[in-house]
Write a protein that binds this DNA or RNA. Structure first.
Lengths: 227, 227
DNA sequence: TTAAGATATATTGTCGACAATCTGCTGGCA
DNA sequence: TGCCAGCAGATTGTCGACAATATATCTTAA
């Protein structure tokens, strides 16, 4: 996953490591959604000064994982149905575009590699039935590669750096596993085929449906959990 | 322009003021594209310490106005045809979506206000023929309001906070005035009408064409300037 | 008893200094 | 002559302390 960006680069500095750790903590609910972020406390917890911590917080804000108000501090975002719908509206649009561009810009080798990757995931999926972590990893990897295949750096930046951690947060904290897992593979396969055939419009359509189905799935869980 | 975000909020802190000043300087070419950013120099120039300066730089990176590499510093972005195309590809997609959502979510008062605003701009445009600054202000204001009308906070954030300064930079530094100005008003008018008729699909289509035309215009200038 | 104001506490924003890292140059060696 | 190692200078990253601001508590008057 060699995305060159302030968020995906290998951690060379303290704030890089902090970013990764706090990101994971927020996404997995270790630091609960909606809770206030205390700079002195986090600084003690990770044994660093507040300077790299604030740098990390600035980047967390960029990922939409926290919200800061001047002179009042930062809070972890809260998950909501409205937020989920807004997020997935964007994903449908942007990943649809990514598919169209990928169908133009991915070379044959990249497509073959992606196809092989999917087969590997399918095989390992059959073995590890129900183990949602690997499924999620595989799904994200699939989406990442198509986004990278678009070769549009702004699009890549927005999706991979700024939106996907929030997507993961929704998925992890609302437990995105279950019967949809098996169907997702077929949908992925169909999307790859469209890209391989250089049919950008079809890939676009299929991706929008794929994400839309995923949204409905989470939406259902959220409504059930809320009642 | 009461967008609540780390970038549009009224400047309450030093780094807020720094952000606005450096943003303006970069967009208008006062700090030339591609040049290296020296933290000590800027800190002296604006009479602040490096702490708020670095905060401002982090947010400038978020606007895609500078690029930072760890332990090596920051550079102002360079303008290129490829960058312009990538940027406008995204704008077409995102502002198209914004139109579709605005047709659903803007209330009648907002639409009436937007329509009145356009008429005012048209009147003042006829008077100040050729004065490109007001035209640009008016155009941006138009786009902003539709984006805000989408009521999708992620979409708003991406377009207004992260992409639009770069758009302005391309326009300012490549001199976006001339014969297209008059036609843009008609296109704006048609888009508003579609939104007022709650015809999201048409508004989407018209906005994509509007931005596409704008892209071709800049593209032309860039090619001529490059040769 | 409640509400408004003042005070105390805690948190965030900013500063200057130091440590770690990179860049460019000099000098020695093949 | 060309190239690599090592050094000097500058730049970025991090630290601890102070100033400015917000939040919580307590007092006091209606």
């Amino acid at each position: 996953m060699a995305i060159q960006s302030p968020i995906w680069r290998s951690p060379v500095t303290s704030s890089d490591r902090l970013l990764l750790e706090i990101q994971r903590a927020i996404v997995e609910g270790d630091i609960p959604a909606g809770s206030k972020i205390s700079e002195p406390e986090l600084a003690r917890r990770f044994s660093v000064s507040r300077a790299p911590l604030r740098e990390a917080l600035a980047r967390l804000e960029r990922c939409h994982l926290i919200e800061r108000t001047p002179n009042a501090g930062a809070r972890v975002v809260t998950l909501s149905l409205a937020g989920l719908l807004s997020l997935y509206q964007l994903r449908e649009e942007l990943e649809g575009l990514a598919c169209r561009l990928a169908a133009e810009n991915m070379d044959d080798a990249e497509i073959a590699e992606l196809s092989a990757l999917l087969e590997a995931h399918l095989a390992s999926q059959r073995v590890r039935e129900g183990e949602s972590y690997y499924q999620e990893e595989g799904d994200l990897d699939f989406h990442y590669r198509i986004i990278l295949g678009s070769k549009n750096s702004y699009l890549i930046n927005i999706l991979c750096d700024e939106l996907y951690f929030l997507v993961r947060m929704y998925r992890v904290q609302l437990g995105m596993n279950g019967p949809r897992v098996s169907r997702a593979f077929d949908e992925h396969k169909a999307i790859i085929n469209a890209i391989a055939n250089r049919d950008g419009e079809l890939a676009d359509l299929l991706m929008r449906r794929h994400i839309g189905a995923s949204r409905k799935n989470i939406e259902l869980k959220l409504l059930n959990a809320g009642s």
